[in-house]
Design a binder for these strands. Structure first.
Length: 772
DNA sequence: TGCTGAGATATTTTT
DNA sequence: TATCTCAGCA
């Protein structure tokens, strides 16, 4: 079958573009990944480029893997020669290859965010920095932010005393990392950028090599990433390959971590992009769902402009439900889901989305009580589990003993009588000799020195013993010799931890196979000396280069590679053993996924859009894009819900419904609860769906009803009720949050959403009940 | 050395 | 409300 079969005209145009830079605006569900991979396959198949001339960058390992899988199903091609991976993965590879030029040890290790934070804490403590004034988290944010913008401490401008100090600390942090031979995530990119910028022949080499650079999710790139791409694409130097950027400005939801949508426009401008192709044909959702998405996102001002269309027909309308409380919202979700399942929908095809993780609890409780299996996305990943990190730390020390973070993590774990005082002594010795903790051990005498020396012996011994062993065997030995296994066997809750530790042997086996290391090659063995390797080595202007289609084994030992893998790919969160379960997740983590039915919950002012978004410039626009992402996850059924009251952080909050409802096309919506409703007040009357349920005696809803009653009935003789929707001539629609004072002189606190929170005198203010 | 209780603190997240 | 972190204690 031909590669180009079944592509629509726009997709076809994108796939077969000439060798020039191009921007592909790919809407949700428009076949973005397909275009990207088919483009690569087409370039290869038509002989326009060899595998080594391809570089494809993604943000997540999952996306990279997906690309590789699809590609190898299209073409019988050796994917090893291509550079396909995440920004961080590819930079790791670059830095290993050129570690000398990058001034790094070949066995440099990668700090994940946890490691980075603890390293900063340690440094602040050692320097006696006031942690009230300079919280470790703030400093970490400051450092990462600077790095993401390509700035070293020396080029950061400081405008006050605090910032000046932060800059100093940034510099000290970098020095410490250098001493230990570790790099953080942002450093991987910054180092690579600086290396290429500084080293002309090297840069030229890669510019000539990568004829085609393809970038996925371009709207999520930060400034440093964009500059790195510019460098590789030879922008402004008259050479280099073509950049093929795929992105969707409407799905830019990561500004908070430095992503800059502006890079899309910048790319158009900088590269004088003549090929802008919009993929607007959606293959995922029914019409009413797409109409809702299009209507909503049209409220954003700064857009490149795009409108999704579908051939699938209008389908079902979007169903909207107003619940009386978060508890009742959860109950409604369960009822609806059950009826969907009754129609034959699989549980795993139903997703429940929320803006923030805190919202999942109530839903989980209800699902659990109803006996419905569910999976919550985003928990602790495999390589982030404490016991696994401990084992990794032992391996790290064997590969690079100067990694102080690893040293401190396990020097006394499992306990071996090395207390805080010994560590303090050691830290002082290390400081005064300007060496790592490991190297400072011989300077410590006495009993403390003895235990420390024993620890060093343990590491050295393990290294010696495993010298000739392949990686999985080495892991096995380390688990034993570190006494980690023995330690957890003694613990009562240790069984799961032991299983996780033992899984590491399997993880190592799999890794060695997948990365093409010889199954029996010793884990410690560094890359063959480059001259001896012969094959794969090229010289450019007298500089020795390893051709990057040489296997990974040429640039790092199995052990170093495995450790990098553990930091760069945290591993999946524990998967629910293949069970067909409903999917719970934040809207952010739903990006890139799709489901037959989607519930978007908690659509209330303050929650979604989130209250903190109004403080940021264009914050609400980003929330709207988030909503856009949420809507476009649904194939056939879309539900939205909001509640009158919700328990959050131990407090009951009364919220107005989200402004986003006003931005949806009325004809695509179906209000399950009356749009304009008469509400219960004063003790009796009720016409809405929920209060019938609330005050029903007995029945399965009784417990919930009771709680609702406790929370919402607030007889106070004013004729008004907390939680009631009202309307005011000037402030618009609002919800009563609180009522103070008696019948004659009562004042009500009312949340008018966008118009803010007001306190109004009930005898003066002209309030109208929303509805009749 | 590990436990306990006070206190803070609570968008979103991948690498 | 629930979870995490840190200081102080047996």
């Amino acid at each position: 079958m031909n590669l180009l079969d079944n592509l629509n005209p726009e997709q076809l145009a994108a796939v077969t573009l000439p060798n020039q830079s191009a921007l592909i605006l790919a809407g949700a569900g428009s076949g973005k990944t397909r275009v990207l991979t088919t483009r690569i396959a087409w370039l290869l198949q038509t002989g326009q480029v060899s595998p080594a001339g391809i570089m494809a960058v993604t943000f997540t390992n999952k996306a990279a893997k997906e690309m590789l899988t699809r590609l190898s199903s299209m073409l019988p091609v050796n994917t090893r020669g291509m550079w396909i991976g995440t920004f961080h993965g590819l930079c790791n590879r670059l830095l290993r290859t050129h570690h000398r030029d990058a001034a790094l040890p070949q066995t440099f290790q990668i700090l994940d965010s946890q490691d980075q934070l603890s390293m900063i804490k340690r440094m602040l403590k050692a320097l006696n920095v006031d942690d009230e004034k300079y919280p470790a988290k703030d400093l970490m944010y400051f450092i990462n932010n600077a790095k993401d913008q390509g700035m070293r401490a020396s080029s950061v401008e400081a405008f006050d005393q605090v910032q000046r100090r932060m800059v100093e600390l940034y510099d000290l942090y970098d020095q410490q990392c250098q001493r230990e031979g570790v790099v953080d995530f942002a450093e991987l990119l910054l180092r690579s950028y600086e290396l290429l910028q500084r080293n002309h022949p090297l840069r030229q080499h890669y510019q000539m090599r990568f004829r085609h650079i393809l970038v996925d999710e371009f709207q999520d790139t930060n400034d440093l990433q964009y500059n790195l791409l510019k460098l590789l694409a030879g922008h402004g130097e008259g050479r280099g390959g073509a950049m093929f950027a795929v992105g969707d400005d409407d799905q830019s939801i990561y500004a908070f971590r430095g992503a800059n949508v502006g890079n899309m426009q910048a790319f158009e401008r900088d590269f004088e992009v003549k090929n802008l192709i919009k993929l607007e044909q959606n293959y995922r959702s029914h019409g009413h769902i797409l109409d809702s998405a299009n209507f909503l996102i049209a409220n954003n001002a700064k857009r490149l402009g795009k409108n999704l269309r579908t051939d699938a027909g209008q389908g079902e309308p979007v169903r909207i439900y107003e619940a009386s409380s978060d508890l009742e919202e959860a109950q409604w979700i369960i009822d609806e889901s059950k009826s969907l399942m009754g129609e034959g929908m699989r549980r795993s095809e139903i997703a429940i989305l929320y803006r923030s993780n805190a919202q999942s609890r109530v839903i989980e409780h209800a699902l659990f009580a109803a006996g419905l299996p569910y999976t919550v996305y985003g928990g602790l990943r495999y390589f982030q589990r404490a016991e696994v990190k401990h084992a990794i730390a032992y391996l790290q020390l064997m590969d690079n003993p100067h990694n102080d973070s690893a040293f401190l993590r396990v020097v006394n774990f499992p306990t071996r009588g090395i207390g805080a005082r010994s560590i303090e002594q050691l830290q002082m010795a290390a400081e005064s000799h300007g060496v790592s903790l490991y190297a400072a051990v011989p300077h410590i005498g006495g009993k403390a020195g003895g235990s420390l020396a024993n620890f060093v012996k343990l590491i050295e011994g393990a290294r010696f013993e495993t010298q000739q062993l392949p990686l999985p065997e080495m892991v096995r030995v380390v688990l034993e010799r570190s006494t980690l296994l023995a330690h957890y066997e003694k613990e009562k809750e240790g069984q799961e931890r032991i299983e996780n530790l033992q899984q590491m042997v399997g993880a190592a086996t799999q890794f060695v196979q997948e990365e093409g290391f010889g199954a029996h090659s010793p884990a410690h063995l560094g890359p063959p000396s480059q001259a001896a390797a012969g094959e794969g080595v090229v010289y450019v202007d007298g500089i020795e280069l390893i051709e990057a289609d040489a296997p990974l084994a040429t640039v790092m030992s199995p052990l170093s590679a495995f450790l990098a893998h553990a930091s760069l790919e945290a591993g999946d969160a524990q998967a629910q053993a293949g069970q067909d379960a409903m999917q719970l997740m934040t809207v952010h983590s739903a990006k890139g996924l799709e489901f037959d039915a989607v519930f978007i919950t908690g659509l209330e002012e303050g929650l979604f859009p989130h209250e903190s978004s109004s403080r940021e410039l264009d914050g609400v626009d980003e929330e709207r894009r988030l909503m856009y992402v949420a809507i476009t996850r649904a194939r056939r059924r879309l539900y939205m819900s909001f509640t009158q009251q919700r328990m959050l952080h131990g407090q009951t909050r009364f919220n107005v419904k989200s402004r986003f409802f006003e931005e949806l096309p009325e004809e695509s919506l179906k209000w399950l609860t009356p749009r304009v409703q008469t509400k219960w007040f004063g003790g009796r009357k009720s016409t809405t769906a929920w209060d019938d349920a609330d005050f029903r005696e007995g029945g399965s809803d009784n417990q919930i009803a009771k709680q609702i009653t406790q929370r919402s009935s607030n007889a106070n003789g004013t004729g008004w009720r907390i939680g009631e929707s009202v309307s005011h001539a000037r402030f618009g629609e609002g919800v009563i949050v609180n009522i103070e004072g008696g019948a004659g002189s009562a004042r009500a606190q009312i949340n008018f959403g966008a118009a803010g929170m007001k306190v109004l005198d009930l005898s003066i203010a002209k309030l109208e009940r929303v509805g009749t």
